[in-house]
């Protein structure tokens, strides 16, 4: 999935990953050998955790960027670029998956 496709598709956490919030940051642990990398655990910083929390299978990258720019001191354009890059990283790691297109309709 390239960045244009990432921007246009709503994503949701992978069912193969358990997420737990610890001290304000997300700890992401693959629990099944699906797409996620079983030999790793992942942590996200504060902004990454906010983004991960917003992945409900309905919101697209632009909507997430708008919400991030409302909560943090960043303009929407930069937030958009950072959100896209972060979502690409999550996808590469197998921690998120494209949502069912029927969700949210």
């Amino acid at each position: 999935m390239n960045s244009a496709e990432t921007a246009a598709r709503a994503l949701c956490p992978s069912p193969d990953v358990v997420a737990r919030r610890v001290a304000g940051e997300y700890l992401l642990v693959p629990v099944r050998s699906g797409a996620a990398q079983m030999d790793y655990i992942f942590t996200a910083n504060e902004i990454g955790s906010v983004i991960f929390q917003l992945l409900d299978g309905r919101r697209e990258a632009s909507e997430i960027a708008r919400l991030v720019s409302q909560q943090f001191e960043v303009d929407e354009e930069r937030a958009g670029a950072d959100v896209l890059e972060f979502l690409g990283t999550l996808l590469d790691a197998g921690l998120v998956t494209p949502a069912d297109p029927a969700v949210g309709r």
Partner: peptide, 22 residues
């Protein structure tokens, strides 16, 4: 900025850290 609500927090780019369990 025309936004409603409270003070916005300091921003830093989102980071995903990866720790290998071997």
């Amino acid at each position: 900025h025309g936004r409603t609500g409270g003070r916005r927090r300091a921003y830093e780019p989102p980071i995903l850290r990866r720790v290998r369990l071997v």
